[in-house]
Design a protein around this nucleic acid. Structure first.
Length: 530
DNA sequence: TGACCAAGCGCC
DNA sequence: AAAGGGCGCTTGGTCA
């Protein structure tokens, strides 16, 4: 049963069971809680706007259909990505957000509704839903796309819930860590002591003041010292000999920590012992999530010791091992590769085909999935073509489609953006071959990465439904999940992770010899998980 | 002053 | 882990 839901700013709204009559209510949260017992699939114009309000009122729902996300998926599949883009731009202008340019990344989920329809009534929602369901039925494989829509929509619920619940974050430990690395928190505008000391060493090494944050000043200073540099990337710096290099590298590393994940960051993003990130479902064209603040997906590993379970609680941390090659094996239906992917260590199982060298198997697989051509790649790819022809051809076809400017799709039907006008111009020009190859690498990678992302999304959706109260999903990073739960639930949650991985595999690929190992560990501190 | 870009590097 | 695809985020620096 679908029930469309709208709310107004006063906490009231309308519930419209599809095929039934609308019911106007003064207290949406209460009405939703009551109806949730019947487990409807709630129809939201955009879960990002409505669901946080429900969460704040203490209401959670099991299932939803997110019209905005679904519209983005459908338009892309229908080759109408441009419409999604222009709607995204209109939405951005309406809300005073940065307007994405034509060549920019994704048409996001805020893509679909024209500004004048920003306040959709329940009947308009029902209309859009009917239209979407009909378009899905008309697709070549509606079953897969329905799964994609369900998973994406469940993702919208999880993202809002994780933003609401937050990941445990011990500010006291964070402060200790920063103080240990940088010195005590400085007063306004000053550098922390250890950072300043390193900056002073850089200045001393050059014999005159140089701001280590300024690329221009650094290049000029090195030039004055007789060292020609194109960039100041750490890799390039490491190759030269100059007394400024040591302190400069140390400075860069610590300065990043200070400005990205320092005290000011914590002031903004950590409240009541929780880091609350803003996740953007489908924010990456491949279907991976992005964040719109807080940088939750770029937390440096050194910060993991700050993530500590509450007293009497545990963190259950799990990541999928060698996810992408397994996804390729399952998609391509390559018997030989699938057999290897039935083992815990896929690359070891492949080694025999590559002269007994596990490393060679690894390079071959990675090069096939990412379009690598350096080193031994060509030779090893030839072996792969010989031994695993279906898998080889699968990614080769995706690359070829990209080079020709065609669209490619994930297993469930997420569709790559079309080439931009800029790309078409480039391809017609003198650097055309290179532009074509670049896009081939992108589409080659897209089919694998996007399917891996939907496997992970399916896992997340299933796991969410298996968790006992009061366990909470608190972190999700591409192929890794974290659950925060009472210690006594640790075993149950660990089992739920394994069950969810198996179910995600079944949902996407049915009966397949490919295994998707997802080992969960129970820790009190994130740093102990790896 | 604010808008915007490039560099650089963190994560997967 | 790989290697290379894609992201976010901050700073310095430029331009109107």
């Amino acid at each position: 049963m679908y029930v469309a839901l709208t709310s107004d700013s006063a906490g009231g709204g309308t519930l419209l069971p599809i095929g039934g009559r609308p019911r106007r209510v003064d207290d949406v949260a209460r009405a939703v809680r009551e109806m949730e017992e019947r487990r409807p699939r709630w129809v939201f114009a955009d879960a990002r706007h409505l669901y946080p309000e429900l969460l704040a009122a203490g209401v959670r729902v099991a299932r939803c259909h997110d019209l905005a996300l679904t519209q983005g998926l459908l338009l892309a599949h229908e080759g109408r990505y441009g419409e999604a883009r222009s709607a995204a731009a209109a939405h951005a202008r309406l809300h005073g957000l940065p307007v994405p340019d034509d060549d920019g990344p994704a048409a996001r989920q805020d893509t679909l509704f024209e500004p004048e329809r920003a306040e959709l009534g329940a009947d308009a929602l029902a209309e859009v839903l009917a239209d979407q369901l009909a378009r899905i039925e008309a697709l070549p494989d509606p079953g897969r796309f329905r799964l994609l829509v369900a998973a994406e929509s469940a993702g919208a619920l999880v993202a809002a819930e994780m933003g609401h619940d937050g990941m445990p974050w011990r500010r006291d430990i964070h402060d200790e860590l920063l103080t240990e690395l940088l010195g005590p928190r400085p007063v306004h505008g000053m550098r922390p002591a250890k950072l300043q000391a390193l900056a002073d060493q850089v200045t001393a090494a050059f014999g005159h003041p140089v701001n280590p944050d300024s690329v221009q000043q650094l290049v000029k200073a090195f030039k004055g010292a007789g060292v020609a540099l194109k960039t100041t990337r750490s890799g390039e710096l490491k190759r030269i000999e100059h007394p400024a290099v040591g302190p400069l590298l140390a400075y860069k590393e610590l300065a990043r920590l200070y400005s990205f994940h320092g005290w000011a960051w914590a002031d903004q993003w950590v409240r009541e012992g929780r880091f609350r990130a803003e996740y953007v479902v489908g924010g990456v064209v491949s279907g991976r999530w992005a964040t719109s603040g807080g940088g939750a997906l770029q937390i440096p590993k050194v910060m993991r010791r700050v993530v500590v379970a509450d007293e009497g609680w545990a963190l259950i941390v799990a990541d999928a091992a060698q996810l992408e090659p397994r996804v390729l094996a399952a998609m391509a239906g390559d018997r030989g590769l699938a057999r290897a992917a039935g083992e815990i260590d896929l690359y070891s199982a492949l080694a025999k085909a590559f002269g007994g060298e596990r490393d060679h198997a690894k390079i071959a697989m990675l090069s096939a999935m990412y379009g690598g051509t350096s080193g031994d790649a060509p030779k090893l790819l030839a072996v792969m073509r010989e031994r695993f022809p279906l898998a080889y051809r699968f990614v080769e076809d995706a690359a070829k489609a990209g080079e020709e400017g065609k669209l490619v799709r994930s297993w469930l039907g997420r569709t790559s953006p079309p080439p931009s006008q800029r790309w078409k111009d480039l391809v017609a020009g003198p650097d055309g071959a290179r532009a074509a190859r670049d896009r081939g690498r992108f589409t080659r990678n897209f089919v694998v990465q996007a399917t891996a992302a939907e496997w992970a999304l399916a896992l997340l959706a299933v796991l969410r439904g298996l968790l006992p109260e009061p366990a909470r999903l608190v972190f999700f990073q591409h192929d890794e999940v974290m659950v925060h739960c009472p210690l006594e639930q640790a075993e149950q949650v660990t089992a739920a992770v394994a069950a969810a991985a198996a179910e995600a595999t079944r949902l996407l690929f049915g009966a397949t010899p490919v295994r998707f190992p997802m080992e969960a560990v129970t820790v009190s501190c994130y740093a102990d998980a790896k």
